[in-house]
Nucleic acid binder design. Structure first.
Lengths: 216, 216
DNA sequence: GTCTATACTTTGATAGAC
DNA sequence: GTCTATCAAAGTATAGAC
């Protein structure tokens, strides 16, 4: 039955093509995240991304229609990835838990997923000001929604009386996220285990780096 | 005496020219810092810097020989400015002061001068990875020297028993500088006074955001 | 899907008039 | 000191062969 055989071969060929397309597309995206994070938006050329992904420059345009479409994909991955991970982790905390446990979970989830998303997270936090206005607005909104989530988390802790009374929640959020996001600049795998870093950071954020003076 | 008069006029003209040159040079540098901080290294064009500084593109090259020379000047200003301010402030603390007072001073000086140097500080921290290799190395060294200074500061505090025992000094430094440097991203003048922000940050870094549980 | 070739645009930098 | 004019290099993106 030549007809069926032909169909089979055709179907098989199409499937392989799609798999190849998906693989290439992901490799391009990952490479783009690396280069964007390192060189900035304008400093990233389609030629370099293509070269590092093992393609010719023209071939990129089969997977992404433009440089703008490429940076959009990178930014979304970096912002949504981390935000979703943290929301998920926090949602899994039992209702009975203290606000401290909630924030402890959020801190560790943020740090962990941030480093897991690596160059995506880096690019999405470094390049927001460099990309074309339309893209910038969209992703600044994403970032701010996640910021609101953190503010709500801190409000809970303040409401339950666990935060130091009178603490400025906006400052506390900036303080926390700043300390955590900076890990993108210094963290290198191979040192202290990530879980350890996470719990030490959580301790520093919640209780500071100085000894407690019980006399106070 | 036409001779003397001529000399006078010539000297006066030369002086005015020099003043004009200095003014333009500084305006160009300041403008460059703004654009670099916003758009990244490659995203900053000499034409845009010139335009915002009220000059034609070609005229920039009278003040700076190249784009590289321009970014070097911006980076140096941002890194040296903050580092020198903090060292100066710490050096002025009395010998009798506690390590806590020393670090409190450093925190506030870092935050204050960081925001004072604004776009210079921003550019020098965002663009290190984007600039040509030769320039990058030089300024990464500058940044690392300042990092050593902070590590020494924390070692002092650990040595005097004021830090929580067993705290990882490298992590504590990353934690502190991360929280502080992030202010470059969110701080806008017009809100809470900078002194207030400084002391609240110092409190959060040293004692955390949670209430102290005296029972522990 | 990927390659080669190429059209079009922008950029850093220079030269010479004023 | 600043301007105008201009060049060579490098960038994004497209078109058509394979």
């Amino acid at each position: 039955m030549p007809t069926k055989s032909l169909l089979d071969r055709k179907a098989a060929g199409s499937t392989i093509k799609k798999m190849k397309a998906t693989l290439s597309r992901e490799r391009v995206l990952k490479t783009a995240a690396q280069v964007f994070a390192e060189k900035g938006y304008a400093g990233t050329t389609m030629r370099v991304v293509a070269e590092r992904a093992g393609l010719q420059a023209g071939s990129l345009y089969y997977h992404y229609r433009s440089k703008e479409e490429l940076i959009e994909a990178v930014l979304s991955m970096g912002l949504r990835g981390v935000a979703d991970s943290v929301r998920l982790a926090v949602a899994a905390v039992p209702e009975t838990a203290s606000a401290r446990e909630l924030i402890d979970t959020a801190i560790i989830a943020h740090l962990t997923s941030l480093l897991e998303y690596g160059d995506y997270a880096l690019a999405s936090r470094r390049l927001l000001g460099q990309v074309p206005p339309r893209i910038r607005r969209k992703h600044i909104d994403l970032r701010d929604e996640y910021g609101d989530f953190w503010l709500a988390l801190l409000e809970t802790a303040l409401g339950s009386g666990e935060l130091r009374p009178g603490v400025d929640l906006h400052l506390a959020r900036a303080f926390t996220l700043g300390a955590l996001n900076y890990a993108l600049e210094w963290y290198r795998p191979g040192g202290k285990p990530l879980e350890e870093i996470g719990s030490e950071f959580s301790l520093m954020i919640c209780d500071g780096i100085f000894s407690r003076r019980l006399s106070e």
